Amino acid sequence: MSPRLTTRFWIDAYLARLRLADIAAFVVAHGDDTAGAVLVKLATLDGQAQLFQRSFDLTSGARVWVTLTKGGERDVDAAIQRQRGFDPDLWVIEVEDRQGRSLLDQDGLSA
Rank of each mutant, 00 (worst) to 15 (best):
M1R: 10
M1L: 09
P3I: 07
P3A: 12
R4W: 06
R4C: 09
T6S: 15
T7S: 14
T7Q: 11
W10T: 06
W10R: 15
W10Y: 13
D12T: 10
D12S: 12
Y14T: 01
L18F: 05
L18K: 01
L20N: 12
D22T: 11
F26D: 12
F26G: 01
V27G: 03
A29H: 15
H30G: 05
H30R: 15
G31W: 08
T34D: 13
V40S: 01
V40K: 00
V40H: 00
V40F: 01
K41G: 00
L42W: 09
A43T: 09
T44K: 08
Q48C: 03
Q48I: 01
Q48T: 13
F52I: 00
Q53P: 01
Q53G: 15
R54K: 15
S55A: 15
F56I: 14
D57N: 15
T59R: 12
T59P: 02
S60P: 08
A62S: 10
R63C: 06
R63G: 07
V64G: 01
W65S: 03
T67F: 00
T67C: 04
T67D: 03
T69P: 03
G71I: 06
G72L: 03
G72R: 13
R74Y: 05
R74I: 07
V76T: 08
V76P: 09
A78L: 10
A78C: 02
A79C: 09
A79D: 12
Q81K: 13
R84C: 09
R84A: 14
P88L: 03
P88Q: 05
P88E: 11
L90E: 08
W91R: 06
W91V: 06
V92H: 11
V92I: 13
E94M: 04
E96S: 14
E96A: 11
E96N: 14
D97E: 08
D97C: 11
D97F: 00
R98D: 09
R98G: 10
G100V: 01
G100T: 03
R101C: 03
S102M: 04
L103E: 08
L104T: 00
Q106H: 10
L109E: 08
L109R: 02
S110C: 11
S110T: 12
S110L: 07
